[in-house]
Amino acid sequence: MNDWLLLSFDILILFILLGLAWLTCNTKEIKRGVTLFVAFGLLLAVIWARLKAPDLALAEAIIGAGISGALLLKAMRDYTEQTSLSSETSRFYVWGINAASLALFVLLAWGLWHALERSDGVRLAENVLITTPESGVSHPVTAVLLNFRAYDTLLELAVVFTAVLVVLAMGTKQRDFGKGEPILIAMVRWLAPILIVTSGYLLWVGAHAPGGAFQAGAMLAAAFILMSMTGVRVDSMLNDSSMRWLLVIGIGVFTITGIVMLLINGHFLAYSKELAKMLILLIEAAATLSIAAALTLAYLGGMPKPQQKTQSAVKIDKTEEGTS
């Protein structure tokens, strides 16, 4: 009886998932597409919770629905022109794509079925679950992220950093939204401190329960983005150089820890057992700050420029355009 209930829930949720994905990818209106995409992100969070991945559910609810929604809404704001309907696309091209997509799906489905059917049940999971107590933290996902596969996480922070460098290179901060409605301001005044405290909690709890640097960083960024949306000048809280320090502190602390461990233990990022918990917490705290700074800057759309420099920046922009 319980199995059937669960199965009908699964089928229902998968129907909504496929429907939302289809609508998001086939709408011709940008506003509608963005709204559907945010709904799709929220549904993903439910699916992660169903598949016993609470870490992902937390991250997806903050990032997939919250932060990417804010990013897209801000991008949409400047997008007033009518969407160009793909009128020139030939029927032949559309049918070709449809047939190729269907063929690709059949091929992938066949591959997945074989992978599941032929699987011998040997997983990395057993190794991870057995060795987690030695990693310095008791939550397996955090152990994988910051101990067993710390290389991956270091390089992933580098990818985020590079993406933000591109955003910074593309121009200075975009204009803010105006002052928000009184109700919104009052709500954010209550919410922002709660979000910041929750972010600290998520960082700490990551050692033994779902949570960790990524969720905490995203939550902190969400607090700043929310404040920025109501017209608070977030960028005036921090000057240029402290923002830069916040951006690099994650990779910096991670790399320095790795090199120190290389000198002590002979392997890059091989923690000493008794120091592991403290080192992981140190790296996570630094990574939280960096991720929060990166996501906030990505939302602002560039480094805020001091007031007196704005004039010259505009001039440089104009000369660039003149030469190109």
């Binding site: 990013l71 152990a143 992220l145 996501l295």
Partner: peptide
């Protein structure tokens, strides 16, 4: 299995920064 979870977690964060980059 926690290993794919950790990979997807980094993937979600990378996906949102890639989106911010594409928007810029």
């Amino acid at each position: 299995d926690p290993v794919p979870h950790a990979l997807v977690l980094t993937g979600i964060v990378v996906a949102v920064s890639a989106m911010a980059m594409a928007l810029a």
